[in-house]
Structure formats: structure tokens, C-alpha cells
Amino acid sequence: MSKILIGRYLPGDSVVYKMDPRGKLIATFLFIAIIFLANNWQTYLIASLFSLVAVLATKLKLKVFWDGVKPLIWLILATSVLQLFFTSGGKVYWQWGVFVISSFGLVNAGFIFLRFVMVILISTVLTLTTMPLEIADGMEALLKPLKFIKVPVGEIALVMSIALRFVPTLMDETIKIMNAQRARGVDFNEGGLLNRAKAFIPLLIPLFINSLTTALDLATAMESRGYRGSDNRTRYRVLRWSRYDLVNLGYFVLLTLLLIIFRAA
């Protein structure tokens, strides 16, 4: 269960943890964008080094990052291999029908591979070091300008926070009900496909009903406390910029500058 992307937050206390979620969100999105500036080995080297620094700065075990890359490794390899076979140009090493291994292909495959891994690493840094609720708060703050075109940003953020808040609850509930039905003789991993599918009915129905009950209870609780949308609400978790965000900003500006300077014209 812990492999699921959302809520993969791991507690820690390095610099990255102290950065503001808004800053981390912006940096992550921009990183994914500016990585396309890289177009030669110098710039890819720079971007890779910066990703590694970000990973190391979390002070988490490297294994947790590997866990982030692992589920996608086949997708990454497949994309790289396609790139390898279908890019032509440069010196040709091997050819068979439409399949070509050329020097351009090799280089491009390597670049695609690196780009993929970097994007995953950087977004893993974000999700590992930022609590889901902080991410939701950060999103809300960043989306605020959309209020002017009548997008209900507050409500969207509320729905998001509630959904995130209940992911672990739902997971616990799933395990609990699964165990309760196992104790009543349900076998979730024996028998044919049909039997296995059937075994999920006693799991899914209680899960749905409990979720609905929880949702209704929550709505009642919020209404009885006078919740009336998001206008002029103060907040419990206030986002504040700190000097740690300067580290984030500096890191990002430096990376952009280096990429622009060293990229092939």
C-alpha cells in the first residue's frame, strides 16, 4: 500500500522539508519545463547534478527514490529503446529494415532516459517531503488568480484536501474490512478469476457505504459548525515564506542560467 504515489510523504527534517510548498510546487513544475532547455551533454550533466543535489538534500535513504523510479522503469526503457531504433542520423552502427542504431539514436535514447529519471526524481522529492495537505494548500495559493475568472478555487482546494485527508483513512478501512471478511472465510487470493472477483463484493460494498456515511457525517459536521464556502476564511495552516525558500530560488535560478549558458545554440 505504501507504494501508492499520493500520501507517500515520509517525515524528515532537512532543508527541503522546511521549504514552502508553494515554492516547491513552482520549482518542480518549472524544472520539468526547463529540462527541455538541455540539448547537449554539458547541459544534461548539469541538470543531472542538480537533480542529484536535490535528492541528497532531502537526507532520505536513496532506496525510497529507487522505489519511486522502479514502477516506471519499463516505461522509461521502452521509450528509450524506441528512440534508439527510430532515430536516424550520424554514424550508422547497425541496420535492419526500418530499425537503425545510429550515433544520434544512441545519444537521444540516453537523453530521453535521463530526462525521464530526472522528472521522476524531482517530483518524488516533492511528494516525499511535502505533506499531501501542504500540497493542496500550495495549489490553492497558486491557483488563486483564477478566482477572477470565477473559478471556485477555495472549493476545489477543499475537495482536494478532503480527498487527500481520507486516502490513509480509506486504506486503513480497506485493510480492516478485508481482514474482517477473511476472518469470515473469504479468500481474496484463491480460486479462479470469477471467484476472486466475487470475493471483492464483501469488501467493496462496506467500503462504499462507509465512505458515504463518512462523507455525510463530515458534511453535517461542517454545516453545523457554520461552514459557508471559502470567502474571507482565515486558515489554520498559514503558508509563510522563509529563508529556506531563498535556497530553493537560488538553486533554480542558477540551474536556469547554467542551462542557458551551456546549451548548444
Binding site: E190, I201, P206, N210
Partner: peptide, 24 residues
């Protein structure tokens, strides 16, 4: 492993906390 535990679960039964959530 989880295989072959059914006889045990027949002999030993659990009532979980707030078991009403297992009704379906």
C-alpha cells in the same frame, strides 16, 4: 503464507472493533 489458512480461520474467529462496518 496466506494459502491454506482457511481451516485455522474456521477454528478461530475474530470480531473486530466496530464490526458493523463489515456488513454487506
Amino acid at each position: 503464507t496466506n494459502k491454506g489458512l482457511k481451516p485455522l480461520r474456521h477454528k478461530v474467529s475474530l470480531v473486530f472493533q466496530f464490526p458493523e462496518s463489515q456488513l454487506f
